[in-house]
Amino acid sequence: MTIKRITFVQEMLKFMGLEGRLHLEWISSAEAQKFARVVTDFTEKITHLGPSPIAGQTRSISMEPHENKRRKHEYHKAG
């Protein structure tokens, strides 16, 4: 069930444009090395992706009209 739910959230984030920020891995208490490897890899990946675009600024994004115009423009220019 966990895997289905996580897959759902991964797909949802992908649709929203926040792909790759959620990862699921089964690690038993005997697999210390695997644990270390997975955490290191994921930390690296997240650092590479940079801070989440919604972290700490959900309000300010929505409150700035010019910011919205920019987003709309960005979207239409690309589309």
Partner: peptide
């Protein structure tokens, strides 16, 4: 047709 960033922009624009 839209990469990650474009999809994000689109939805944030809509939601705002």
């Amino acid at each position: 047709n839209n990469d990650n960033g474009q999809r994000f922009s689109r939805w944030m624009y809509e939601f705002s």
